[in-house]
Amino acid sequence: MSETPLLELRGINKSFGAVHVLHDVDFAVWPGQVTALVGDNGAGKSTLVKVVAGIYGADSGESFFEGRPVHVSNPKDASDLGIEVVYQDLALCDNLDIVQNMFLGREKRNGFILDEASMEARARETLASLSVRTVKSVRQSVASLSGGQRQTVAIAKSVLWNSKVVLLDEPTAALGVAQTRQVLDLVRRLADQGLGVVLISHNMNDVLEVADRITALYLGRVAADVAAKDVTHSQVVELITAGRSGDLGITSSGAIA
């Protein structure tokens, strides 16, 4: 593990009106590692992701990117730093093909004219570098892809821009067994390329299989931040549901072990 995390949040607080959603949350993403962010519904996972992505501003707390203090106040700041989020609903345009979707909003041009040749070549390179061989053609429309392939395209789109941190919101939630397999392999390959990957998931099998670290949220607090190999399936479930498991997790006084 390298010494500085790619992305580090310290003491993040966020409230919506009277509801205190995040309490002093510390969160780190390391290069080359898959960090799983787990927690029950309402634990604050989505809010934390949106703070990282710049969609919500935090009420207090500090952010560091590659050790430098940064201020992310909107989604563009986040993408300029190299932080990309792949949302659960994917947000692909069904009427466009894979290349067009991957370059949407950032099309390459020769003067006024779209540079289709360069875009197609780059898209193919990126898919090949991720060992994606599941699509018949990069010129097929996204509507014709399976759920796993759509997920793959959405993830490949996020790495096309030399991003350093990729956050994946429930990437396997709607997928079958074989497609889940493809996406988890892809998640692993992203980390192997040196990216910091954040995997948000409810599926403990997925988490324990690909994650290097697990950060468990419980009612807006970090219950534990542990190496995946040090915990068992049932311990993670206890952390999610009760906030503690044995000597791990939040003690009754509210301090963190």
């Binding site: 989604p75 563009k76 949302y87 609903d89 994917l90 947000a91 692909l92 345009c93 979707n101 949407l104 909003g105 950032r106």
Partner: peptide, 8 residues
């Protein structure tokens, strides 16, 4: 929505 998120 996808277009909006792509910065269009």
């Amino acid at each position: 929505e996808a277009a909006r998120r792509a910065g269009i």
